[in-house]
Simulated assay, not measured.
Amino acid sequence: MSKPRSLALPPRTRAYRLVTARGGFAVLDREAVGAARGTVLLLPGYTGSKEDFLALLGPLGEAGYRAVAVDGRGQHETPGPRGRAAYRRRALALDVVAQAAALGDGPVHLLGHSFGGLVARAAAELAPDAFVSLTLLSSGPGRVNRPQRVRVRALRGALALLPKEQVWRATRWLDSRGEEPDVTDPPEIVAFLRRRWMTTRIAQLSGAGRLLLGDPDGTAALAALPMPLHIAYGDEEMVWPTAALAAAAALTGAHHTVLVGAGHSPNVSHPEELAARLTAFWDLAAQVSTASSGAARSRPAAPGAAGRGLAGTG
């Protein structure tokens, strides 16, 4: 989960329901300033929402990118079914493909933060032609670390046994004993976090947790994708092992960005720097896409800089 520091909408940002072939999804849509350089679809993480990208929307728009952050099905302001089947990997991936199509800008850049990276990978595998590039932000093709697996199992177990309000209070109490005590949160942020928790479907929280716990190492599938890849994270990342993320970047030939001083949510803590790194990658990815237009895109035979054409470390 990311915790926004402000709930103010950036200039030129609209909040509305994006109508797609698979239903409506709550979005924050930040228009590009000047000549549009592309469109990016932003997927939030576990227990998060579109507001996780509020600090990032402005810099992306100023850089010439239309940036659209979305609540997935059952997440915060997007309705969702109660049934377990609605939150399987393929169902969530089909939603993302429909969202990209509904934006009406052709293939888009796709970014998934944390759990959103798992969904983004699934969408890219399902419909690669819908996306110009794929960025995994604080997210890997491998498993989350052991403390996070324990935490997710405990949360799913609590939701199955206890009232949602009680689980919320317990979660906040645990946070207050850790790195982010309640006293650091302004009242409006606490109110927002509670509202987001209460409006998110239990089935979504349980289903997303199940996918996080059961997600196999997807490095091989990621390497097979026919699009430019980007793996970005902070050097203080605490959900995925940074060594595993670096290894995945090397094995897939992905562009590789490490933000110094950032933790699990560079989109909140380092939005300006992250935006600069992202837009530089997307500019290069668009050049690759343009150069290969008119021919079928295929995965390069070998990983690394020569294979992807974009590999590098920031």
Rank of each mutant, 00 (worst) to 15 (best):
L7Q: 09
D71S: 07
R153A: 15
P10G: 14
S206D: 07
E165R: 15
I202R: 15
R84G: 08
A243I: 13
A208N: 14
T242H: 11
D52L: 07
P10Q: 03
R143L: 00
L94T: 01
A8F: 05
L126A: 07
P44I: 05
E180T: 10
D129A: 14
R84D: 14
G45A: 12
R297I: 06
M1V: 09
P300H: 06
D175T: 10
T171D: 04
G112Y: 02
R194F: 09
L259F: 11
R12M: 15
R14L: 05
A220G: 09
W173C: 05
G72P: 02
S139A: 15
D283C: 11
S114M: 05
T39W: 08
V68F: 00
G207W: 09
A36W: 06
T313N: 05
A220H: 11
L251Y: 07
Y233A: 12
R153L: 14
E62C: 12
F25C: 06
A154D: 03
A276R: 14
W240T: 02
V119C: 04
R149A: 13
L92Y: 08
S2P: 05
R196D: 05
L126F: 12
V190M: 13
P79V: 14
M198T: 10
L212P: 01
G304Q: 12
T199C: 01
R194H: 12
V132T: 12
L251A: 15
R169C: 05
A302K: 14
A208V: 07
A302P: 07
A246E: 09
T20L: 10
G294I: 10
L7K: 14
A249E: 07
R90A: 07
E62S: 13
D29H: 00
A248F: 09
P11M: 02
P128R: 05
G38S: 01
A122S: 11
G72S: 08
L18D: 07
A301S: 15
H76Y: 15
L278Y: 03
P59M: 01
D175N: 11
R308I: 04
L212H: 03
A63H: 00
A35N: 05
P303M: 04
V40R: 00
A160T: 10
H113D: 10
S2N: 02
H76S: 11
P186T: 10
D95L: 12
P10Y: 03
R194D: 07
R169M: 06
S139C: 09
L94S: 00
F131V: 11
F281G: 01
R90G: 01
A32E: 08
L42C: 02
G116A: 08
P44A: 12
L193D: 06
M1Q: 03
M238A: 13
G83R: 13
L57H: 02
A102W: 13
D217T: 04
I189E: 05
L211W: 00
T20W: 09
L310Q: 12
V268E: 06
R66W: 00
H230Y: 08
R90H: 13
L284E: 09
A93E: 07
L94E: 01
A15Q: 08
E77M: 13
S139N: 01
L42S: 08
